[in-house]
Design a protein around this nucleic acid. Structure first.
Lengths: 163, 163
DNA sequence: ATAGAAAAGTGAATTTTATTCGGTAAAGAA
DNA sequence: TTCTTTACCGAATAAAATTCACTTTTCTAT
Protein backbone atom coordinates (compact mmCIF):
# COMPACT_ATOMS: atom_id res chain seq x y z
CA UNK A 1 0.00 0.00 0.00
CA UNK A 2 1.39 3.35 -1.07
CA UNK A 3 0.95 6.34 1.19
CA UNK A 4 -1.17 9.31 0.22
CA UNK A 5 1.93 11.40 -0.24
CA UNK A 6 3.46 9.39 -3.07
CA UNK A 7 0.38 9.84 -5.24
CA UNK A 8 1.23 13.52 -5.45
CA UNK A 9 4.94 13.69 -4.68
CA UNK A 10 7.61 11.55 -6.25
CA UNK A 11 11.06 10.85 -4.84
CA UNK A 12 12.59 13.96 -6.39
CA UNK A 13 9.91 16.18 -4.85
CA UNK A 14 10.61 14.72 -1.43
CA UNK A 15 14.33 15.13 -2.01
CA UNK A 16 13.81 18.80 -2.89
CA UNK A 17 11.63 19.38 0.18
CA UNK A 18 14.16 17.66 2.39
CA UNK A 19 16.98 19.85 1.11
CA UNK A 20 14.88 23.01 1.46
CA UNK A 21 13.84 22.22 5.02
CA UNK A 22 17.51 22.07 5.97
CA UNK A 23 19.02 24.72 3.74
CA UNK A 24 16.53 27.05 2.08
CA UNK A 25 19.21 29.36 0.71
CA UNK A 26 20.69 26.78 -1.66
CA UNK A 27 20.95 28.06 -5.23
CA UNK A 28 18.70 26.57 -7.87
CA UNK A 29 21.76 25.46 -9.80
CA UNK A 30 23.19 23.54 -6.85
CA UNK A 31 19.76 22.03 -6.13
CA UNK A 32 19.52 20.90 -9.78
CA UNK A 33 22.88 19.13 -9.47
CA UNK A 34 21.81 17.32 -6.32
CA UNK A 35 18.57 15.98 -7.75
CA UNK A 36 19.98 15.31 -11.23
CA UNK A 37 17.67 17.60 -13.18
CA UNK A 38 18.15 20.72 -15.25
CA UNK A 39 17.81 24.07 -13.45
CA UNK A 40 14.52 24.95 -15.17
CA UNK A 41 12.94 21.60 -14.31
CA UNK A 42 14.08 21.93 -10.71
CA UNK A 43 12.80 25.47 -10.51
CA UNK A 44 9.40 24.46 -11.86
CA UNK A 45 9.10 21.75 -9.24
CA UNK A 46 9.96 24.10 -6.39
CA UNK A 47 7.38 26.62 -7.61
CA UNK A 48 4.80 23.84 -7.86
CA UNK A 49 5.56 22.66 -4.32
CA UNK A 50 5.13 26.21 -3.04
CA UNK A 51 1.90 26.70 -4.98
CA UNK A 52 0.41 23.47 -3.69
CA UNK A 53 1.12 24.43 -0.10
CA UNK A 54 3.78 21.91 0.88
CA UNK A 55 5.96 24.76 2.10
CA UNK A 56 4.41 26.83 4.87
CA UNK A 57 7.11 29.44 5.29
CA UNK A 58 10.74 30.19 4.55
CA UNK A 59 12.45 31.73 7.54
CA UNK A 60 15.69 32.53 9.27
CA UNK A 61 15.92 31.07 12.77
CA UNK A 62 17.67 33.63 14.95
CA UNK A 63 19.95 33.00 17.90
CA UNK A 64 17.86 33.57 21.02
CA UNK A 65 20.80 33.84 23.36
CA UNK A 66 22.72 36.36 21.27
CA UNK A 67 19.61 38.50 20.99
CA UNK A 68 19.15 38.66 24.73
CA UNK A 69 16.36 36.15 25.29
CA UNK A 70 17.41 34.42 28.47
CA UNK A 71 14.23 32.57 29.39
CA UNK A 72 12.37 29.95 27.41
CA UNK A 73 9.27 28.90 29.30
CA UNK A 74 6.67 26.23 28.86
CA UNK A 75 3.41 27.22 30.45
CA UNK A 76 0.61 24.77 31.08
CA UNK A 77 -2.77 26.30 31.67
CA UNK A 78 -6.49 25.76 31.89
CA UNK A 79 -9.40 28.14 31.67
CA UNK A 80 -12.57 28.03 33.72
CA UNK A 81 -14.53 29.45 30.83
CA UNK A 82 -16.28 27.07 28.50
CA UNK A 83 -18.30 29.42 26.34
CA UNK A 84 -17.22 29.27 22.71
CA UNK A 85 -17.08 33.06 22.41
CA UNK A 86 -14.87 33.65 25.42
CA UNK A 87 -12.45 30.93 24.38
CA UNK A 88 -12.07 32.64 21.03
CA UNK A 89 -11.19 35.89 22.77
CA UNK A 90 -8.50 34.19 24.86
CA UNK A 91 -7.01 32.39 21.88
CA UNK A 92 -6.97 35.53 19.79
CA UNK A 93 -5.15 37.35 22.59
CA UNK A 94 -2.56 34.60 22.84
CA UNK A 95 -2.04 34.67 19.07
CA UNK A 96 -1.33 38.40 19.25
CA UNK A 97 1.28 38.22 22.01
CA UNK A 98 4.75 38.18 20.44
CA UNK A 99 6.31 36.45 23.46
CA UNK A 100 4.06 33.47 22.75
CA UNK A 101 5.88 31.46 20.11
CA UNK A 102 3.56 28.49 20.24
CA UNK A 103 0.18 27.64 21.65
CA UNK A 104 -1.36 24.20 21.42
CA UNK A 105 -4.61 22.69 22.66
CA UNK A 106 -3.68 19.51 24.47
CA UNK A 107 -5.19 16.33 25.83
CA UNK A 108 -4.43 15.66 29.47
CA UNK A 109 -4.35 17.57 32.69
CA UNK A 110 -4.09 21.05 31.19
CA UNK A 111 -6.00 22.58 28.26
CA UNK A 112 -3.15 24.55 26.73
CA UNK A 113 0.58 24.43 26.37
CA UNK A 114 2.41 27.66 25.62
CA UNK A 115 5.99 28.12 24.52
CA UNK A 116 7.05 31.58 25.59
CA UNK A 117 10.27 33.48 25.00
CA UNK A 118 11.23 36.15 27.51
CA UNK A 119 14.23 38.41 27.91
CA UNK A 120 14.45 38.53 31.69
CA UNK A 121 12.73 37.50 34.88
CA UNK A 122 10.87 40.76 35.33
CA UNK A 123 9.13 40.37 31.99
CA UNK A 124 7.98 36.91 32.96
CA UNK A 125 6.03 38.28 35.88
CA UNK A 126 4.36 40.84 33.61
CA UNK A 127 3.47 38.13 31.15
CA UNK A 128 1.90 35.84 33.73
CA UNK A 129 -0.10 38.80 35.00
CA UNK A 130 -1.42 39.25 31.46
CA UNK A 131 -2.50 35.62 31.42
CA UNK A 132 -4.39 36.01 34.69
CA UNK A 133 -6.34 38.92 33.29
CA UNK A 134 -7.60 36.67 30.49
CA UNK A 135 -9.43 34.45 32.97
CA UNK A 136 -6.95 31.61 33.19
CA UNK A 137 -7.56 29.64 36.36
CA UNK A 138 -4.65 27.24 36.57
CA UNK A 139 -1.16 28.12 35.42
CA UNK A 140 1.96 26.05 35.82
CA UNK A 141 5.21 27.50 34.51
CA UNK A 142 8.31 25.44 33.73
CA UNK A 143 11.59 26.99 32.72
CA UNK A 144 13.72 25.35 30.07
CA UNK A 145 17.06 24.74 31.77
CA UNK A 146 18.91 23.30 28.81
CA UNK A 147 18.14 22.66 25.17
CA UNK A 148 18.96 19.15 24.06
CA UNK A 149 17.42 19.52 20.61
CA UNK A 150 15.41 22.10 18.73
CA UNK A 151 14.61 21.34 15.12
CA UNK A 152 11.98 22.01 12.48
CA UNK A 153 12.95 19.12 10.22
CA UNK A 154 10.20 16.65 9.42
CA UNK A 155 11.35 13.05 8.86
CA UNK A 156 10.20 12.81 5.24
CA UNK A 157 13.06 10.71 3.92
CA UNK A 158 12.98 6.95 3.77
CA UNK A 159 16.25 6.35 5.55
CA UNK A 160 15.56 8.79 8.33
CA UNK A 161 13.27 6.72 10.58
CA UNK A 162 15.35 5.35 13.43
CA UNK A 163 14.71 2.03 15.14
CA UNK B 1 20.48 52.13 30.13
CA UNK B 2 21.04 50.59 26.73
CA UNK B 3 20.62 46.87 26.31
CA UNK B 4 23.55 44.61 25.48
CA UNK B 5 22.18 44.09 21.99
CA UNK B 6 22.42 47.69 20.85
CA UNK B 7 26.15 47.78 21.53
CA UNK B 8 26.60 45.37 18.67
CA UNK B 9 23.46 45.76 16.58
CA UNK B 10 21.98 49.02 15.44
CA UNK B 11 18.40 49.60 14.36
CA UNK B 12 19.08 48.63 10.76
CA UNK B 13 20.63 45.33 11.83
CA UNK B 14 17.56 44.53 13.90
CA UNK B 15 15.34 45.54 11.00
CA UNK B 16 17.24 43.20 8.69
CA UNK B 17 17.03 40.33 11.17
CA UNK B 18 13.34 40.92 11.66
CA UNK B 19 12.67 40.80 7.93
CA UNK B 20 14.80 37.68 7.49
CA UNK B 21 13.10 35.82 10.32
CA UNK B 22 9.78 36.33 8.55
CA UNK B 23 10.81 36.11 4.90
CA UNK B 24 14.28 34.71 4.29
CA UNK B 25 13.83 34.51 0.51
CA UNK B 26 13.56 38.28 0.04
CA UNK B 27 15.98 39.60 -2.59
CA UNK B 28 18.89 41.71 -1.48
CA UNK B 29 17.62 44.54 -3.68
CA UNK B 30 14.19 44.54 -2.02
CA UNK B 31 15.82 44.32 1.42
CA UNK B 32 18.02 47.31 0.53
CA UNK B 33 14.94 49.34 -0.38
CA UNK B 34 13.21 48.50 2.89
CA UNK B 35 16.12 49.50 5.08
CA UNK B 36 17.14 52.50 2.95
CA UNK B 37 20.65 51.36 2.12
CA UNK B 38 22.44 50.43 -1.09
CA UNK B 39 22.43 46.73 -2.06
CA UNK B 40 26.15 46.22 -1.31
CA UNK B 41 25.88 47.80 2.14
CA UNK B 42 22.83 45.68 2.92
CA UNK B 43 24.56 42.57 1.68
CA UNK B 44 27.63 43.24 3.80
CA UNK B 45 25.47 43.61 6.89
CA UNK B 46 23.67 40.34 6.26
CA UNK B 47 26.97 38.51 5.79
CA UNK B 48 28.27 40.05 9.01
CA UNK B 49 25.15 38.99 10.92
CA UNK B 50 25.58 35.44 9.63
CA UNK B 51 29.28 35.41 10.47
CA UNK B 52 28.71 36.65 13.99
CA UNK B 53 26.14 33.95 14.67
CA UNK B 54 22.94 35.93 14.97
CA UNK B 55 21.33 33.64 12.42
CA UNK B 56 21.23 29.99 13.46
CA UNK B 57 19.69 28.50 10.33
CA UNK B 58 17.74 29.34 7.22
CA UNK B 59 15.01 26.83 6.61
CA UNK B 60 11.76 26.02 4.89
CA UNK B 61 8.99 25.05 7.27
CA UNK B 62 7.01 22.26 5.64
CA UNK B 63 3.30 21.56 5.97
CA UNK B 64 2.98 18.69 8.43
CA UNK B 65 -0.57 17.83 7.51
CA UNK B 66 0.03 17.70 3.75
CA UNK B 67 3.03 15.46 4.31
CA UNK B 68 1.01 12.95 6.29
CA UNK B 69 2.02 13.76 9.85
CA UNK B 70 -1.21 13.41 11.75
CA UNK B 71 0.01 13.41 15.33
CA UNK B 72 1.93 16.08 17.17
CA UNK B 73 2.71 14.92 20.69
CA UNK B 74 4.16 16.49 23.77
CA UNK B 75 5.78 13.93 25.99
CA UNK B 76 6.76 14.66 29.57
CA UNK B 77 9.23 12.28 31.08
CA UNK B 78 11.63 11.60 33.91
CA UNK B 79 14.53 9.20 34.22
CA UNK B 80 15.48 7.24 37.28
CA UNK B 81 19.11 7.40 36.27
CA UNK B 82 21.25 10.14 37.74
CA UNK B 83 24.70 9.14 36.57
CA UNK B 84 26.18 11.71 34.25
CA UNK B 85 27.28 9.09 31.73
CA UNK B 86 23.90 7.38 31.39
CA UNK B 87 22.11 10.70 30.99
CA UNK B 88 24.42 11.55 28.11
CA UNK B 89 23.52 8.27 26.42
CA UNK B 90 19.80 8.99 26.71
CA UNK B 91 20.14 12.53 25.43
CA UNK B 92 22.27 11.45 22.50
CA UNK B 93 19.66 8.85 21.58
CA UNK B 94 16.88 11.47 21.70
CA UNK B 95 18.93 13.81 19.54
CA UNK B 96 19.28 11.10 16.91
CA UNK B 97 15.59 10.24 16.65
CA UNK B 98 14.06 12.13 13.73
CA UNK B 99 10.56 12.02 15.21
CA UNK B 100 11.86 14.09 18.13
CA UNK B 101 11.69 17.69 16.93
CA UNK B 102 12.50 19.22 20.29
CA UNK B 103 13.84 18.12 23.62
CA UNK B 104 14.20 20.43 26.59
CA UNK B 105 15.35 19.96 30.15
CA UNK B 106 12.70 21.50 32.37
CA UNK B 107 12.09 22.65 35.90
CA UNK B 108 9.05 21.15 37.57
CA UNK B 109 7.43 17.77 37.86
CA UNK B 110 9.11 16.15 34.86
CA UNK B 111 12.77 16.29 33.79
CA UNK B 112 12.20 16.48 30.04
CA UNK B 113 9.69 17.76 27.55
CA UNK B 114 9.70 16.27 24.06
CA UNK B 115 7.92 17.53 20.99
CA UNK B 116 7.39 14.57 18.71
CA UNK B 117 5.92 14.35 15.22
CA UNK B 118 4.33 11.07 14.19
CA UNK B 119 2.50 9.92 11.07
CA UNK B 120 -0.05 7.60 12.67
CA UNK B 121 -1.10 5.99 15.90
CA UNK B 122 0.82 2.77 15.35
CA UNK B 123 4.11 4.64 15.09
CA UNK B 124 3.42 6.35 18.40
CA UNK B 125 3.33 3.03 20.20
CA UNK B 126 6.64 2.05 18.62
CA UNK B 127 8.15 5.35 19.66
CA UNK B 128 7.04 5.08 23.28
CA UNK B 129 8.46 1.57 23.38
CA UNK B 130 11.79 3.02 22.25
CA UNK B 131 11.65 5.50 25.12
CA UNK B 132 11.02 2.74 27.65
CA UNK B 133 14.10 0.90 26.46
CA UNK B 134 16.20 3.95 27.31
CA UNK B 135 15.36 3.64 31.00
CA UNK B 136 12.69 6.29 31.24
CA UNK B 137 10.61 5.72 34.33
CA UNK B 138 7.71 8.11 34.03
CA UNK B 139 6.16 9.07 30.72
CA UNK B 140 3.09 11.19 30.18
CA UNK B 141 1.96 11.75 26.61
CA UNK B 142 -0.33 14.57 25.51
CA UNK B 143 -1.66 14.88 21.99
CA UNK B 144 -1.94 18.28 20.37
CA UNK B 145 -5.61 18.57 19.43
CA UNK B 146 -5.45 21.93 17.73
CA UNK B 147 -2.74 24.41 16.86
CA UNK B 148 -3.54 27.94 17.96
CA UNK B 149 -0.13 29.36 17.10
CA UNK B 150 3.20 28.03 15.90
CA UNK B 151 5.88 30.58 15.16
CA UNK B 152 9.64 30.98 15.17
CA UNK B 153 9.61 34.76 15.25
CA UNK B 154 11.47 36.39 18.12
CA UNK B 155 10.06 39.73 19.31
CA UNK B 156 13.14 41.78 18.48
CA UNK B 157 11.35 44.93 17.32
CA UNK B 158 10.55 47.82 19.61
CA UNK B 159 6.88 48.06 18.73
CA UNK B 160 6.25 44.37 18.98
CA UNK B 161 5.90 43.94 22.74
CA UNK B 162 2.21 43.78 23.56
CA UNK B 163 0.69 45.05 26.79
C1' DA C 1 38.11 71.56 18.12
C1' DT C 2 40.73 69.08 14.63
C1' DA C 3 43.63 65.89 12.07
C1' DG C 4 44.27 61.18 11.07
C1' DA C 5 42.55 56.49 11.00
C1' DA C 6 39.01 53.20 10.63
C1' DA C 7 34.53 51.83 9.33
C1' DA C 8 30.58 51.97 6.50
C1' DG C 9 28.42 53.60 2.37
C1' DT C 10 27.72 54.52 -2.81
C1' DG C 11 27.45 53.71 -7.95
C1' DA C 12 29.20 51.39 -11.81
C1' DA C 13 30.99 47.14 -13.63
C1' DT C 14 31.18 42.31 -13.52
C1' DT C 15 29.86 37.79 -12.49
C1' DT C 16 26.58 34.60 -11.29
C1' DT C 17 21.95 33.04 -10.99
C1' DA C 18 17.09 32.88 -12.05
C1' DT C 19 13.75 32.72 -15.52
C1' DT C 20 11.73 32.41 -20.09
C1' DC C 21 11.02 30.06 -24.39
C1' DG C 22 10.99 26.98 -28.37
C1' DG C 23 11.54 22.46 -29.30
C1' DT C 24 11.77 17.35 -27.81
C1' DA C 25 11.02 13.22 -25.29
C1' DA C 26 8.29 10.61 -22.17
C1' DA C 27 3.92 9.14 -20.05
C1' DG C 28 -0.98 8.33 -20.12
C1' DA C 29 -5.69 7.86 -22.43
C1' DA C 30 -8.63 6.57 -26.15
C1' DT D 1 -1.13 2.65 -32.09
C1' DT D 2 -2.18 7.50 -32.19
C1' DC D 3 -3.37 11.52 -29.92
C1' DT D 4 -2.93 14.38 -25.91
C1' DT D 5 -0.80 15.91 -21.95
C1' DT D 6 2.98 16.54 -19.12
C1' DA D 7 7.67 17.11 -18.01
C1' DC D 8 12.25 17.95 -19.48
C1' DC D 9 16.36 20.06 -21.88
C1' DG D 10 19.51 23.67 -23.86
C1' DA D 11 20.04 28.20 -25.34
C1' DA D 12 18.84 32.94 -24.69
C1' DT D 13 17.43 36.61 -21.82
C1' DA D 14 16.50 39.08 -17.63
C1' DA D 15 17.52 39.84 -12.99
C1' DA D 16 20.08 39.54 -9.04
C1' DA D 17 24.31 39.05 -6.37
C1' DT D 18 28.89 40.42 -5.80
C1' DT D 19 33.15 43.02 -6.53
C1' DC D 20 35.73 47.19 -6.64
C1' DA D 21 37.40 51.90 -6.69
C1' DC D 22 36.15 55.84 -4.51
C1' DT D 23 33.59 58.86 -1.08
C1' DT D 24 31.40 59.93 3.18
C1' DT D 25 30.85 59.34 7.86
C1' DT D 26 32.28 58.15 12.47
C1' DC D 27 35.53 57.61 16.01
C1' DT D 28 39.82 58.47 18.49
C1' DA D 29 43.52 60.87 20.24
C1' DT D 30 45.85 64.86 20.38
Amino acid sequence: MESIVSKVLDKIDLQILDILQKQVQISNIEMAKRVNLSPPATHARIKRLEQEGFINQQVAILNQEKLGFDLLCFIFMSTNIHQEEQIKVVEKALKTMPEVLECHCLTGEYDYLLKVIIKERKELELFIRKLNKLGITRIQTSLALREIKCSTILPICEGSISN
